[in-house]
Amino acid sequence: MKETLKELSEIVAQANDIFFERNKSVDTLMGIMDKTLRKQGMEADAITIDCIAINKKIVLVLHDSKPDLVDIALGDKAGVVHSSSEHVLKDVNIAQIIAMMEENFLN
């Protein structure tokens, strides 16, 4: 696993744990895609946060061609993306991920 993916996955895991502590009735599932996208021909890794009960998903994509950035997409399990934005990787933090989860999984 690449170091950037490892570091970002640790941030997401911590955010997911805090989110669950605050919202025990909302189950989420975190996934790491460190080979799946590459097998499909994409030079990227991803972390997913799924809220299966309400069919919503947050996907954080690390493209090899943009090593200092992360694309964050909000959508559903079927792959429909409702919004997407690019963030400076070093600026992504636990509080920001928790805020995204609360905005997308609680509203």
Rank of each mutant, 00 (worst) to 15 (best):
D76F: 13
V26H: 13
A78R: 12
L89R: 04
K66H: 13
M101V: 02
T4Q: 11
K77F: 12
T48W: 10
V59D: 05
K66T: 15
Q14H: 10
N107C: 05
V92C: 02
E7F: 07
S85D: 15
H82Y: 15
A44N: 07
F19M: 06
E21R: 12
D76Y: 13
S9A: 09
N16D: 13
H82R: 10
H87R: 04
V59P: 08
E7G: 03
T4I: 10
D45C: 06
I54S: 04
M30K: 07
A53K: 14
A73S: 12
I52P: 04
I58F: 04
D68A: 12
K90I: 14
C51S: 09
I97D: 02
R22P: 00
D50C: 08
L5T: 04
E10S: 03
Q40D: 07
N55L: 10
I18S: 01
N16E: 13
S83N: 13
V92H: 01
F19R: 03
L89C: 04
I58L: 12
K2E: 15
D71R: 05
T4G: 00
D45E: 11
K2S: 11
K66W: 15
I18L: 09
M42E: 08
I54D: 03
F105N: 02
M30W: 04
I97E: 02
D76W: 15
E43L: 07
K35C: 08
M1C: 09
L89Y: 07
A78F: 11
Q40C: 05
L62R: 02
E86G: 06
N55F: 15
K56Q: 12
K77Q: 09
V88N: 04
K6E: 12
I32H: 01
V80I: 11
N104K: 05
N16H: 12
V80H: 10
I18W: 01
R22A: 10
D71N: 08
I72V: 14
A95H: 04
N55K: 13
F20R: 02
V88I: 10
A46R: 13
S65H: 06
G41D: 11
D64M: 11
E3R: 06
F20P: 00
K2F: 14
K57Y: 09
L89G: 01
P67F: 13
K6A: 12
V12P: 03
A53R: 15
N93L: 03
N55S: 13
D64R: 15
S65L: 06
R22W: 03
A44E: 06
D71T: 09
T48E: 12
A44S: 14
M100D: 10
L60W: 05
D91M: 06
D34R: 03
V70G: 01
L60G: 00
N93W: 04
K39V: 08
E21F: 15
F105W: 11
K2V: 04
M30G: 00
L62I: 05
